[in-house]
Amino acid sequence: MSYPGLVAETVKFKAHNGDEGEAYYARPSGAGKFPGVVLIHHMPGWDEWITEAVRKLAHHGFATIAPHLYFREGPGSPDDVGARVRAAGGVSDEQVVGDSRASAAYLRAQPHASGKVGVIGFCSGGRHAFLVACKAPGEFDALVDCWGGNVVVDDPKALNAKRPVAPIDLADSIKCPILGIFGNDDENPNKDQVNRTEAVLKKLGKDYSFHRYDGAGHAFFNASRVAYRAEQAADGWAKTFAFFHKHLG
């Protein structure tokens, strides 16, 4: 079922540490109780494609919020703000988890919320989504990891004070079902890392489904980039919507 009529806007929410955060929020305009999705943006930042992805999920019936994880480095254009964050070594896992949990709380507080909330992330956001499901297992009902890099950590330089733990080492905490979407030509995560992630989830007895696409690399959902792969992206989105409908309603 699709919902062509949408309400989409930037909103304020009480973020990690009590900070006043900024987020992009879209929901179907019709009456009804809608499941929610927290969408965690990719490493380039809270940009135009992220707002498109939020509206796409709303079109398919999910009240979706994308917190601006870099708002503390604003104001400015997404690329400039993202460059500042990169120069500062990125955002801390603790802060991202806090902002994501606060976003889920925002969704559940809305009058049209069903109470079910999933989380999806792209690129670094895929890793963040995985981490959020580990750190707040009772607060998310479904997880979609789209090509999250460094869930498995092979490069010691990827671990530091801001990102002290490889998310895979926390995977036993995950309680919700997991959908993983990956491109076989991706370098981060590469095929071996995806296989090792799957092996851990299988060993732990998690409810997961991984989908790997030939002819696709990183960020292949993004129609404005050369990485876009129309056929694989359409299938990946369809699997995402079906997964969220199954587990969120």
């Binding site: 490493m43 380039p44 940009d47 400015g76 997404p78 690329d79 400039d80 993202g82 460059a83 500042r84 120069a87 690129c123 690399g217 990183h218 960020a219 980039r225 050369v226 990485a227």
Partner: peptide, 23 residues
């Protein structure tokens, strides 16, 4: 991965003045 250039990967250089805050 670059922000704007239509390349899968790019060498990116940000010239900044950290003494002035680097913004």
């Amino acid at each position: 991965h670059p922000y704007e250039a239509q390349l899968d990967h790019a060498l990116c250089v940000d010239f900044v003045c950290e003494a002035a805050g680097g913004r």
